[in-house]
Design a binder for these strands. Sequence first.
DNA 1: CAATCCCGCCACTCA
DNA 2: TGAGTGGCGGGATTG
Length: 709
Amino acid sequence: MEMKCLSLKDLISVRKIKTGSDDTDTMNEQKENICMERRIMTPLKSDSLTGHRRVCSPDITHITPIKHPEKSHPDPWTPTANLKMLISAASPDIRDRELKKTLFRPIENEEKVTEEDDDLDDTCQFEVLDDSERRPSRKQKSLGLLCQKFLALYPDYPEPSESINISLDEVATCLGVERRRIYDIVNVLESLLLVSRMAKNLYVWHGRSLLSKTLEELERTGREQGYHLLMDQREGSSPHAAQHTQNTHVASSRRKDKSLRIMSQKFVMLFLVSKTRTVTLDTAAKILIEEGQDDSSHSKYKTKVRRLYDIANVLTSLNLIKKLHVREENSRKPIFKWIGPSDFRSDSESLEVSGTHTVTGTAERREKMVRHSSFQVVPTPHVNRRLINSAPSTPHRDGKDEPVDFSRKSVSSVACRLQFEDSPRAPSAGSTSVAVSLQPETPYTAQFTPQTVAYLPQTPVLMLYSSHVPEGIIQGQRSPITDQKRAREEDENQAVKRRKHSSSIESETAESECLDTREGSSGNEKEDGVEKRSNTDPHHSSQYLYVSNTAGLNGLNGLNFLMPAGHTHGGMSAVAVPYFLVPSPLMASTGPTSRAEGAAGGNLSFSMPTVLSPARFVMAGGAFGMSDKVNNAEHHGYRGPGSTLSPQGLRKESPRLVQMQTPSTPKEAAMWSKSFFETPGAFGLLASPPAARKRGSAQRKLDIEHSSN
DNA sequence: CAATCCCGCCACTCA
DNA sequence: TGAGTGGCGGGATTG
C-alpha cells in the first residue's frame, strides 16, 4: 500500500497544484484527479530507465512494483478501494448510458469531452458513485469500461515532444483493478501501437498518433496474408464449411497466435480487409483458430471467442468498432463493424512524423516489436515465444535453443519473420489458403519482373503475377485507380460473391449508432464518422501465388497457399520482388544469420518455421520495392529518422528497420513500433506444438536498458 | 439457453 | 526465488 500511496501522492502532488488540496484525507478525491490527470511528461531524459519512469510516478520507476495484495481485493474503504469504486461505479443510469453510448466514444480528448462526457468523466462519476452501487454490476467492471477509463487518462494525440509514460502498476491502482486487467487492455492497445512497452511495468503512450499507420500496415499485412480471401470465403460459405479441413494436428503448435496482441492485430486485419468492414465473432474465431484441431477445436473456439470479446471491448472503447447484431435465423449473431478510420493514410502521416522519430537512426534499435510469436515456427517448443519488443538482449536462447524465436532475437538475426496465417478450415473449397509474407530480405531479394510466372520446383507453386498497378493510394489519395481498382473488384467479386449479410445487419441500438457517428469524428481520426470504409477498400492485388500444399510443405497441414502478390496495400506498391523463395531451413534456424537482416523495407519480417520443409517456401512480400512514396508511407514510423530511411536508402537500410533497438525513448518506440506488425502472422499452425507459452508471455524482456542512449 | 466476459489460477520468464 | 506477464477456461451474468 505504501507504494501505491506514494505513487499516488506523487501524482497527486502534481494535481495539487491545481486543486490545492493535498491531504491524504482527500486522497480519494485526489486520486480521482490523479487518475484523470493526464500524465504528460516532458521529454524524457536521457536515462532510459529513469527516463521513462518519469512518467507519472517517479517512485515507481522501477518497476517491479510491489505487489499489493490489496489490489486485488482492495478494502472497500481504502483509498484505493474508494478510488476504484469511484471510478468504476457510476449510477446505473450512467452506466447504461455509458455503455451504450460512451463506450463508443472516447473520452479522452478534451475536445471530445463535452457534455456527456461528463458522465463518464471523472469527477462526475465519482460523485455519483458512492451511493449508487456498492455492488458493481458486471458492466461496471467490464473491460470496455475499464478501457475507457484508461483512455481517458491520456490524450489521443500527445504532443510529439512529450512522452507519456504509463506505469501499469500505477494505472491499475488508479483504476482500481487488478493488474491482470490492465494487461488485457494494454496488450490490445499495444497491438495497435497506442502504447509501446518500454520496460517492465512501463509503457509509453502514443495515443492515436500512430494509429493510421498501424492500420495501414495491418491492412496490408492482412491482405498479404490472405485474410481478405478468408473473409470472403467465410462470409460466403457456411460457417462450417471450412471445418472439414484436415486437421492436421500440427496444429498443436500454434499456441502463440493466441496471444491477445496478435489476435487483436489479426482481428483488426479482418475488418480492414473486409469489404463490408464487418466481422462476426464466429468468423473471426474460426479464422483465427488454427485450423487443425478437431477435437479440441470446440474448446479452442470458445477460448478464442472469449478472447475476441475482450479485444472487441477494447476496440469498441477505442471507437474502432461497434457491435451490431445480425438477425439470423434463430440465433443472435454478434457482428462487429469497423467504424474507425477507413482511410488511414493521410493523417497518419503527419502525425507520426512529427513526433516520433526524431530520433536516432533506426539502425540502432533493435527489433523490438515483434513480439508475437505467432508465427514462430519452429516445432520446438520454444518456438513460440513471443517476440519481445524489448530487447533480445538476452543472448541465451538466441539461436540455439529456441529455434526460432525471432522475437527475441535481435533483429539482425531475426530478420525474417514470417507471418503466417492459418486459416482455419478452408472454406468450401476445402483447402485453406494461407498467405505468407516474407520480408524481403535483402539477400534474397530478387526482383521479379512483372508479368512473370514462376514455377518452383519441388513445390507445386505457380506464381502469377503482373506488374502492379500503380497506386496512388499513398498518402491518402488514391490514384485514379482504375485498373487497380477494377482488378481488385474483380477479385473480390469472384472470390466472394457469396457474401451476404450486410443487409441483415442492424445496428444494435439506434442510439449507439448515433453515437458512433458522432463519435466517429471525434474518436476516430477525424475523418469519418462512420461508414466510409468500403470504398476505400484496399487494394486487392490481382496476383496470387498458389502453392499447393501437397508439395510437401510439411507442417502446413495440407494447406494450400494462396498468396496475394503485389498488392499495394497500404499504399505501397508492390513492385519489386513480390515473392521470395526461401529455403525454410535457412530461415528458421539461422536466426541470427544473415538473411534475416535483410528485411527491411518491407517492413514485414517473418520467421519461418523450421517446420517447413526445406521445400521451397514462397513468400509474397509486397513491400519490397516500393516507391519512394511508399517507403515513406510505410516507414512512417521510421520516417522521422527518416532521413535515414530515405527512399533510396530504404532498401539497403532496411535492415535497420528491422533492427530497431528497443526504443529508448518513446519516439523511438514509435518508430520501431511499426515493425511491430510484422509479427502478425499466425504461423501457429505450422508451429510446433505447445510451445505454448513460451513465447514470452512471461516477462517480456525489455531492452531498454541499453537503449538508454 | 446462449452470449458475454469477469476473475484469477498458474505457467513461464527473467532478474 | 520472487515478480511481471499473460494464457486460459471456469463459471457468473446478461439477455
